[in-house]
């Protein structure tokens, strides 16, 4: 078994639940033992860094400090979400590159009884771990149900291959790692020209027209290249292309239908798991036709039971802060 400290990130428990479920379905076959960081917090995505720098990096570094404390001989923290992966790696890298940032962050961490020395743990993405630690031979040996005839467009998005501070990837713009994994599963992998182009990121929320154009480029290119399905490594990419594809079609008057799932979902299918175990059925752009190519059905989503006691806290009361001509005022 290979041991990893595991940083799931917020999306894995929400919009990217299919990623979480499918990773859980395959980790045993791959010999991965994942130890979740106890009491991890959000990485701040791309929002906090634009608001307030030292708090943003302190937020990220709390996770690194917790991970390093928990590691006990494990040398790697693995993150499956692209934004989480980049934020952790960026904090680790900049704390060393800019020692004053490292000092300030540690001064803040000390207020919570924590400390982090940059470089004390490696930060790696799930795909990197699968390719370079587990290896393609192991992946191939676990395939019982090759994805023969399924044409897939490998789509990594931005934040895994770039900026790549630690030189872990084969190329900034056309890396081959995802193609290699999908080929090992027996799928027909198309040469997808936009494999590291942007999905729009948070622009679906703050400037939808900008995002719709980027989504249109991606799905139209995948369709032109006759892909049955797109495959990604990133919760944000999956969310934007899957959930906003209908909006994009409405905006442009187009009729694209390009499903997108996580690479771990196809791995799970190829390893003989059922579509339900592989997290299928949660996508909003249906995978029915794509799965039919390999003789599988999409399961119906699990119905939310009426009257079921919900986990979690009560919905917070709306407390919109005023953005008074620029300055965000606190209450």
């Amino acid at each position: 078994m290979s041991n990893y400290i595991f940083y799931p990130g917020c999306s894995m428990e929400g919009s990217a639940k299919a990623y979480y479920d499918s990773l859980n379905a395959i980790k045993g076959s791959l010999g991965m033992n994942l130890q979740e960081i106890d009491d991890w917090n959000c990485c701040g995505a791309t929002e906090y860094v634009g608001m307030n720098l030292v708090p943003a990096y302190s937020l990220i570094a709390r996770n690194l400090a917790l991970a390093a404390n928990q590691a006990k001989g494990i040398d790697t923290v693995m993150a499956p979400c692209s934004a989480c992966y980049l934020n952790l790696e960026k904090a680790d890298y900049y704390m060393a590159e800019r020692p004053t940032l490292g000092e300030k962050v540690n001064e803040a961490l000390a207020a919570g009884g924590l400390h982090y020395d940059p470089g004390s743990i490696q930060i790696r993405h799930l795909l990197d771990v699968i390719i370079n630690d587990i290896g393609l031979e192991t992946v191939k040996s676990k395939v019982t149900n090759p994805l023969k005839g399924l044409r897939v467009a490998p789509y990594l998005g931005c934040m895994v291959p770039r900026p790549d501070y630690q030189h872990r990837w084969s190329d900034f713009e056309h890396p081959s790692e995802l193609d290699d994994v999908l080929k090992a599963l027996g799928a027909e992998v198309i040469d997808f020209p936009l494999k590291t182009n942007c999905c729009g990121g948070h622009m679906t929320q703050i400037g939808p027209e900008t995002a719709y154009e980027l989504i249109r480029r991606l799905v139209s290119s995948a369709e032109e290249n006759k892909a049955d399905i797109m495959v990604t490594v990133c919760p944000m990419c999956q969310m934007n292309l899957d959930a906003y594809q209908a909006e994009t079609n409405r905006y442009f008057g187009t009729n694209f239908h390009m499903p997108i799932v996580f690479f771990t979902q196809l791995m799970a299918l190829a390893f003989g798991k059922t579509p339900k175990e592989a997290g299928f059925g949660m996508e909003l752009t249906s995978t029915k036709d794509a799965l039919a190519q390999i003789g599988k059905d999409v399961p119906a989503p699990a119905a939310v039971k009426p009257g079921k006691k919900r986990e979690g806290l009560p919905m917070p009361a709306p407390r919109l802060r005023k953005y008074a001509g620029g300055k965000v005022t606190s209450e």
């Binding site: 428990e13 929400g14 919009s15 990217a16 639940k17 299919a18 009491d39 991890w40 917090n41 302190s58 937020l59 709390r62 803040a108 961490l109 207020a111 919570g112 009884g113 924590l114 059925g281 949660m282 996508e283 909003l284 989503p301 699990a302 939310v304 919900r310 986990e311 979690g312 806290l313 009560p314 919905m315 917070p316």
Partner: peptide, 20 residues
Amino acid sequence: SNRMSITPKRIKKMDQLKAI
């Protein structure tokens, strides 16, 4: 499809994070 929860989750050591 169970992809979005209508209630937030809170971490255990919120006091520690707030102090930081």
